[in-house]
Design a protein around this nucleic acid. Structure first.
Lengths: 295, 295
DNA sequence: CTCTTTATGCTCTTATTGAGCATAATAGGG
DNA sequence: CCCTATTATGCTCAATAAGAGCATAAAGAG
């Protein structure tokens, strides 16, 4: 049995101004991390207390992501010995107003944000670089097409981690083992931290489809349009407005507050609140969303 | 930074005679576990090598499950210090013939196997015990109904872990903190090992819906009926035969070998093989299955 | 040859999803 | 006050997918 250092890594996610944000340190180059405390009954509980103490954010849904091991100290290689275990967690929170350290998640993964027009051009550039890497290797070509929705393949928004790993293998990231000359745009992070971020986004996109965790990112009351924009922010792509309402309302997840929100223009929108929170059974209720897994 | 002991725990799963099996030690009371080796590039790779060396099983799909922490040594309590980290993995494998140590997974979770008639009676017993625990607490009652499909609620086969935890809380398991007089049937395991098993089954049931991992549990060639029985073994419930074929064939996941299997009786069934294996892109291909998430 | 058994093919009904048109309620400008 | 721009909400229709059952095919047993 070996002696091993260990730490918790937290990926805290919020949504503001229709953009997903993540809490970072060191000018966006690092993620919050801290020592492992098992005094509290469970890792998850320890994680929650630690984060809430450090950041004054109240955490909603918490989810363990992945445990990484790293050969640390003596420059890795064939060394058999000392190492570091990193247990990563994702936590969702509401952000009242602009705060220190929160950065746009898509700064790290520009290709994952497909809500605006710029997407096609970036796709083309990445596609070119990938096909250069793939060469004539059929398996590679197929994998690129499936992962990035090239050659008429549909885009699957849950493949965040697959895409990150493919770019890494293809040498298109600064953190790749052998970086190519052309690099994909986007802010990088040292070590495997950006990989942890990718894991978090993938998990969140998957989760949001079938568990009502979006509401953890919303204010107490909200309009259906705000809810939709939040879901779109996470899914990274636009959805059909009327169908979104239909699905949400059909599921009996929300109830009207009776009030309406006045904006600058247009008909006022009704305000809703999440029903599940009352009974405290949100971890069980489903929440289907009209995000096609692929287009 | 604390010094922490750590180990890998493996949940190896196979399917034989239409029953899911798990590799155990110590007469079914323990799971294989071993030291953590990070010499190999990644935990996952280390896990694979270690398992294949120990068991002579070739592992197909491998998936990290969860990392648990445990205050070990001085009887836990408010102790702040030494502890053990358990990183659990699930691995799928093919089993040629009967081998030492493999036990039926449903021996540990009889209530998860809903393919035979006995299900209703067990449901009723568990339902009674649960409603006694819930008393007049509305939230508890609601949770029991949702989790175990009581009071007309649909049964959701992915809630394996939820059900296990609910039984634990309700004191209906030997490993519960305060066991009740009536206990749910099923083989138990010390510590949190049965919880790890539940995590594995939940993850497998979820995975099998959208990634073609079933094929890792199948022989090279198989009939559609065998495939269906394997899926049913994992999902724990029966499915509609004709619709199963329709869905599988529509997805272009398998191809005919041209041969047929002769059984004792009836028309011979065509043999198929999994197509994805050839290109090695199985981790991307979808595989929708006609298991309704709930009935 | 007939009956039993299992495999396979096909249809019909019923959700569910995708897409778009139509109407309602507000503000602002003439 | 009326007209227009703008956003919210309601509703319909077509395309797809899912659930359930009947019908036919191909084998062995008697």
């Amino acid at each position: 049995m070996n002696e091993i250092r260990s730490e918790l890594v937290a990926v805290l996610i919020a949504v503001q101004d229709e953009m997903p944000l993540v809490l970072t340190l060191d000018h966006g180059r690092n993620l919050p991390s801290g020592p492992l405390e098992t005094a509290h009954r469970s890792l998850q509980r320890g994680m929650r207390l630690w984060v809430e103490q450090q950041t004054q954010c109240h955490l909603g849904h918490i989810e363990q992501l992945y445990t990484f091991a790293e050969a640390t100290g003596e420059e890795a290689g064939g060394q058999d010995q000392p190492r570091l275990i990193r247990i990563s967690y994702m936590g969702l929170t509401r952000l009242e107003d602009a705060q220190e350290g929160w950065r746009g998640l898509y700064e790290y993964f520009p290709w994952e944000n497909r809500r605006e027009k710029g997407a096609e051009q970036l796709d083309a550039e990445i596609g070119r670089a990938l096909s250069q890497w793939a060469g004539r290797d059929a398996a590679r070509l197929w994998r690129c097409a499936e992962t990035f929705g090239l050659d008429g393949q549909p885009w699957n928004d849950e493949l965040v981690l697959h895409r990150y790993e493919l770019l890494w293998e293809a040498g298109l990231l600064p953190e790749s083992r052998h970086p190519a000359s052309w690099l994909a745009p986007g802010r990088s992070m040292p070590s495997d931290r950006r990989r942890i971020l990718a894991t978090a986004l993938a998990r969140l996109r998957a989760k949001i489809r079938y568990r009502p965790v979006v509401f953890e990112l919303m204010p107490e009351t909200f309009t259906l349009w705000q809810l939709q924009r939040t879901v779109e922010a996470i899914a990274g792509r636009p959805m059909h407005k009327q169908n979104f309402r239909r699905l949400i309302l059909a599921q009996d997840l929300v109830e009207e507050t009776g009030e309406a929100e006045m904006q600058a223009q247009g008909r006022p929108a009704r305000l809703y609140r999440f029903k599940g929170a009352v009974i405290g059974t949100r971890h069980l209720m489903g929440s289907k969303l009209p995000i096609a897994r692929s287009i």
